[in-house]
Amino acid sequence: MKTFLKIIGIIVLLAIVYALVAVLAFSKEYHYEKSVVIKAPKEKVWQYVGSLKGYNMWDPFSKEIRDISITYSGDGDKVGDSYHWKGDENEGEQTITGIVPNEKMMTNLRFIQPFEGNAKVVFTLTPEGNGTKVTWAIDNELNNMMKIMKPMMNSNMDKMFGQGLEDLKKLSEK
């Protein structure tokens, strides 16, 4: 029993040390990006990247929310257009902040539930060989709890961005 308690004590101590190191050492600035090359011209890929309605055809995050309701403001393809989602204890909105047709769309992502926060999202299309390279990037600021969870966040972002880009690729290559 003493050995078991010692092991538990060591695990708790290591968790506390990790949390302190994470809070003190990890930057509050967070950047994640992932790319895929799609065998389609950028004009075809753009129809799914250059508008919020197109984006929602392959967005992996909204697929994870049960009972999601999406409301659009505008056509979803101009600066200032936005969409609001709500469902299953999740709520937020995404607004277009900049567009370079067939090349780049920038948005502000505002989380309302289950936690509040803001992030900047950029989709960039560049020619690559006979196809189009799509880079999906997100930048935000981490609070102390998110710093502690950063390794899990990276793993989740890799999974979700990978899934989304694969779905985008399937749509664009039809």
Results as ranks from 00 to 15, higher is better:
14 L>D: 03
85 W>R: 10
48 Y>V: 01
164 G>T: 01
28 K>G: 10
97 T>P: 11
158 D>G: 13
33 E>H: 13
72 Y>W: 05
124 T>P: 10
106 M>S: 08
158 D>N: 15
19 A>C: 11
172 S>L: 09
173 E>W: 00
66 R>A: 15
171 L>M: 01
40 A>W: 03
127 P>A: 11
40 A>P: 03
40 A>E: 02
106 M>K: 02
34 K>E: 06
119 A>N: 03
162 G>Q: 10
46 W>I: 06
19 A>H: 03
46 W>P: 01
57 M>S: 14
2 K>D: 15
169 K>G: 00
31 H>K: 13
49 V>I: 05
153 M>T: 11
43 E>G: 08
113 Q>H: 06
30 Y>H: 12
46 W>E: 02
64 E>P: 07
23 V>K: 01
19 A>N: 05
131 G>V: 03
18 Y>R: 02
122 V>F: 00
94 Q>Y: 05
9 G>L: 09
19 A>I: 03
12 V>G: 02
69 S>T: 14
80 G>V: 03
142 L>I: 14
4 F>H: 13
79 V>S: 04
155 S>C: 06
110 R>Q: 14
111 F>N: 04
2 K>N: 14
64 E>M: 15
107 T>W: 04
21 V>N: 04
14 L>G: 04
104 K>Q: 11
121 V>W: 09
42 K>T: 00
103 E>G: 09
156 N>W: 10
164 G>M: 01
99 I>M: 12
103 E>S: 15
14 L>A: 09
153 M>Y: 08
88 D>W: 04
88 D>M: 02
163 Q>T: 15
150 K>E: 06
118 N>G: 12
87 G>P: 00
148 I>A: 09
102 N>T: 13
27 S>Q: 13
39 K>N: 13
149 M>G: 06
109 L>K: 09
19 A>Q: 07
27 S>N: 14
106 M>G: 03
137 A>N: 07
174 K>N: 15
119 A>S: 11
77 D>V: 07
107 T>D: 12
43 E>D: 14
95 T>F: 09
13 L>R: 08
133 K>V: 03
37 V>E: 03
54 G>D: 09
52 L>N: 01
156 N>M: 13
48 Y>S: 00
75 D>Q: 14
157 M>R: 08
160 M>T: 02
98 G>C: 10
148 I>T: 12
72 Y>K: 05
42 K>F: 02
123 F>Q: 04
141 E>F: 10
111 F>D: 06
116 E>W: 13
10 I>A: 06
61 F>H: 05
130 N>E: 08
94 Q>C: 08
43 E>I: 09
126 T>P: 09
51 S>N: 09
162 G>T: 10
89 E>D: 15
76 G>N: 02
142 L>S: 13
19 A>K: 02
78 K>V: 11
125 L>W: 00
152 M>N: 15
69 S>M: 10
162 G>A: 08
29 E>I: 11
123 F>V: 04
26 F>V: 14
56 N>T: 07
73 S>K: 13
49 V>C: 02
150 K>M: 15
127 P>S: 12
137 A>P: 03
137 A>C: 11
132 T>F: 05
85 W>A: 08
102 N>I: 11
25 A>W: 10
54 G>V: 05
101 P>D: 12
69 S>E: 15
157 M>C: 11
82 S>W: 04
96 I>H: 00
55 Y>M: 12
149 M>Q: 14
62 S>Y: 14
165 L>Y: 03
66 R>Q: 15
90 N>A: 12
122 V>M: 04
